[in-house]
Design a protein around this nucleic acid. Structure first.
Lengths: 224, 224
DNA sequence: ACTTCGGTTATGGCA
DNA sequence: TGCCATAGCCGAAGT
């Protein structure tokens, strides 16, 4: 990892187009060819490029121009003056981060404990293909004798409601099957719940610490 | 901006939960309190935290522990050994990046040149409120005498199609008005076009260099 | 190579 | 402050 602190300006063209005015910032050049220009603010670099094919270094008017290129993008950094430069030796192949409480793990947990959502639910399949994209979980309701499409989210927004309705819609249209729409999530906001109520989508709240606790049945918010 | 290169491990808990095994990486501490742990790969830090409230430094078993805290999150970095450390002086208030060809500018351009989409279109309003969120542009079709809801995207996906259909749907339901659905975009992929055809949504292609060129009428891909 | 989708998405704007 | 939609979203997995 090479770090250059310099008074620089930059131009990017590719996915979008930006002009970065002259200021003192730091450039990070990683071993894999990722280029980041950082200022003193926030998580994101102000300009950047990943997966560069090659780069060209030129001296124009006593200023160093760095040009990073790949098939679709171009990032030019003009170094008006270099203030300092460091070469940092990090481990190239560092051990991967371990993620807990991901949506994938939540999905797996719910599919293996589906009766915690509703005692009448029986698991049918995960990632069931509807023709309009896969539903997270497809289940069977012993009580109503309908199938149930369950969309799992860590944080449910209005989009989740629309998403599950699309599945229902496509199944109705193509196979003339009625399917009960359900969104199960740790977090719901009010506008999402209001929309769900209007659209008759059942929302089931999953406790924050689902990986330790059990899903409580009476947390069900709406009935069909 | 302070940079520490160290043999470190880290634990994050807040929005998610992660464990980062021991390895040599670099820590970037910004003036605004953003903390980034970077390895030699990619755009994203492996661990990070923004908007910290305060931090605690402790020495436990000859190892320095850095604990960054805000109301909802906690990031602990264990420095097994510090390799090097640098203090970089950047400009705190650097001039903002200038973005061109944003969706907002595209929207403005189309609203001022609406007849380029279709010679019969007349502009009514931008960000027209439907009750299910605002439509980008509402227009009038002199030919069919219908109103037209236009969703503008730089890159249209299937979501854009569903989005514009929601507006149509809500207007039909609440005001019993038929509105023609249109998605205008620089890029459409095939699955989006297929969906649009099925759903009778008109797709209009905007040239890549719309900020220099004119929108050509005959690029319209589907009619109602 | 392209598409789809989750993310500790981040970030800006607006209610 | 919280909620919403955009982003040069990124990155990963599947096709």
């Amino acid at each position: 990892m090479r770090i250059i602190v310099a008074d620089l300006s930059a131009n990017y063209e590719g996915r979008g187009k930006t002009e970065l005015p002259k200021a003192i910032r730091s450039i990070i050049i990683k071993e894999d060819g990722s280029i980041l220009i950082h200022n003193e603010k926030g998580f994101k670099p102000v300009n950047y490029m990943t997966k560069i094919d090659h780069y060209i270094e030129e001296d124009i008017d006593n200023e160093k121009h760095l040009l990073f290129i790949n098939r679709k993008e171009k990032l030019e950094i003009i170094l008006h003056s270099i203030i300092e430069e460091h070469n940092l030796k990090l481990e190239i192949d560092d051990p991967a981060i371990i993620r807990e409480q991901t949506e994938d793990l939540l999905q797996l947990y719910v599919s293996q404990n589906i009766e915690k959502l509703d005692k009448n639910y029986q698991f049918i399949s995960r990632e069931f293909e509807t023709g309009f994209g896969p539903v997270d979980i497809l289940a069977y309701n012993k009580n109503t004798k309908n199938k149930v499409a369950i969309e799992i989210k860590r944080n449910a927004t209005m989009n989740a409601i629309y998403q599950v309705l699309r599945y229902i819609d496509s199944m109705k249209k193509y196979k003339d099957q009625y399917i009960e729409p359900v969104v199960a999530s740790i977090k719901f906001n009010d506008s999402t719940l209001r929309l769900a109520e209007r659209k008759k989508v059942k929302c089931i709240k999953i406790p924050e610490n689902w990986d330790k606790e059990k899903i409580i049945n009476k947390t069900t918010l709406f009935d069909l």
